[in-house]
């Protein structure tokens, strides 16, 4: 059993709903984002490349790739980041993390791991999202968990449930009947930086 995610680039409109759903669900501190949407195009968000009117842009939603062969795990000196044997999720244990950020250097997917440079701050007074998410800690690295707390209840990750374009699919890649396996079937896809040998679990459908 290994969890994987498929993101349909043809359907993604770069709307950031996944980013926001993740932020709320996991009560992410200000300035911390586990799920971001990059524009593949011009210099800024939502700008295309080319010469008007022959221009084009694409979107690349990016979160932790939950690699089969994660570079971060090898880099962590204290075992705070590890891959769960039972489902392949790469998790981060905040209690063990010593804030050395070796994992961030080792991870080829810049930005998916984020660091609490200061004591976590929140724009509003109440804790958003799910009560089962782990409390954020100063001087620790954090990232997408595939919403393990939701999986434990049989729910899908928040970003899957909320994508307005229904471009995101999730499930057990080892199960041919799972949503993610079915979404991939017959489609072309790419994975990010495969030459690094990390074997990411996010499939970008094209």
């Amino acid at each position: 059993m290994r969890y994987a995610m498929a993101i349909d680039i043809k359907k993604c409109t770069g709307c950031h709903s996944c980013s926001v759903a993740c932020k709320v669900e996991n009560n992410l501190p200000d300035d911390i984002w586990w799920n971001r949407v990059l524009t593949v195009g011009g210099e800024n968000m939502d700008t295309p490349m080319g010469k008007f009117p022959n221009v084009k842009m694409e979107y690349l939603p990016i979160n932790c790739q939950h690699c089969e062969n994660p570079a971060c795990v090898k880099a962590c000196p204290v075992g705070a980041t590890y891959k769960r044997k039972e489902d392949g999720i790469v998790v981060q244990d905040y209690d063990k993390c010593i804030g050395c950020r070796y994992c961030m250097v080792a991870c080829p997917y810049s930005g998916v791991r984020q660091f609490n440079w200061k004591k976590p701050e929140y724009a509003i007074d109440i804790a958003m999202g799910d009560k089962d998410v782990t409390k954020h800690q100063y001087n620790t690295v954090e990232k997408c968990t595939f919403c393990v707390h939701r999986l434990a209840r049989g729910e899908k990750p928040a970003c899957i449930e909320t994508c307005p374009n229904r471009a995101r699919h999730f499930g057990d890649i080892d199960d041919p009947e799972s949503e993610v396996s079915k979404a991939i079937q017959g489609r072309t896809y790419f994975k990010l930086l495969e030459e690094k040998g990390t074997k990411p679990s996010i499939y970008y459908l094209t």
Binding site: D175, G186, T206
Partner: peptide, 28 residues
């Protein structure tokens, strides 16, 4: 953080492949 300038070529290095219809059975 959010609006990293990026080009598909430098970051993605896409390797397109068609999914094989799985057929892998869950271990347990």
């Amino acid at each position: 953080i959010l609006n990293l300038k990026m080009s598909r070529r430098s970051f993605v290095k896409a390797s397109a492949a068609t999914a094989i219809g799985a057929g892998v059975v869950a271990s347990n």
